[in-house]
Design a protein around this nucleic acid. Structure first.
Lengths: 129, 129
DNA sequence: AATGAGGGTTCCAGTCACGGGAAGGTCAAG
DNA sequence: CTTGACCTTCCCGTGACTGGAACCCTCATT
């Protein structure tokens, strides 16, 4: 399979697939004309990567998870550890964003949003005064 | 005031302050020795920027908000529009992260986390099977 | 006078995970 | 034979900084 078809199949942009090869996450073969030839195992890997990325794992996490995936002697605790660390990051980010949303929401509610210059949003940013 | 003191006062790293000058957000004066000299208005601006950035506004949003802040003839609706667009972005991101958290949370709960290789997390990433 | 500490300066490279676009090779169809 | 759709590599840009090198300025101490 050529990269275009793989892109369609996996939903990953061709650029992304080439990038994943660059950083050693996939190793497709090459045809005589230089085109990448993807085997089913490559496509399987790419789907794995796509799902892991969709869950927000970093590329390095993906590398780790793939290694574990391909290691029959892995301990599920190792997988769980990676996942839990990532979950903690997600929850921290959610907390940050919730705080922003609350503050911003209040400010927006307090702002008249008309053609006058008075604006509690700018007042807050300017240091309340 | 030199950059070190400004950094302490505003809580912004000196590097960040120089960067903000680079991109034209602040324009401190210069002493004869080449050192930046910050006036109170510069510090005020930097505090404004710090707060806006803490609310997650992009640098470009900050530029817009600062311009509105300094424009006595602004309409608060313009400010509100920027803020609402940003709030929408935040909420979209929260939704994404919540979805990730839910999925990841379920997978983690389902994973034994012991020394055996069986792992629902990897099964899911591998395409359920 | 030399030295050292603790400021400051510029500039360059790296981050993360790609995306855009140029310049060029390959292939099947008309 | 040409067209158009593929494919290739290579390099630059993204956002908002951060780290580090190499160097200057000022003051205090030896």
């Amino acid at each position: 399979m050529n990269i275009g078809d793989v892109s369609t199949q996996t939903g990953l942009p061709a650029k992304t697939i080439r990038y994943y090869e660059d950083i050693g996450l996939v190793k497709p073969l090459r045809d005589d004309n230089g085109y990448r030839r993807f085997r089913s195992q490559d496509i399987h890997k790419l789907n794995f990567l796509g799902r892991a990325r969709a869950l927000g794992f970093t590329i390095e996490d993906c590398r780790t998870l793939m290694a574990l995936y391909e290691d029959d002697t892995r301990a599920s605790s190792d997988v769980k550890k990676v996942a839990r660390a990532h979950l903690a990051q997600i929850e921290a980010k959610i907390a940050d964003l919730n705080a922003m949303r609350d503050t911003l929401g209040h400010l927006i509610d307090a702002c008249a949003g008309d053609d006058r210059p008075d604006c509690p949003i700018l007042q807050d940013l300017g240091g309340k005064a």
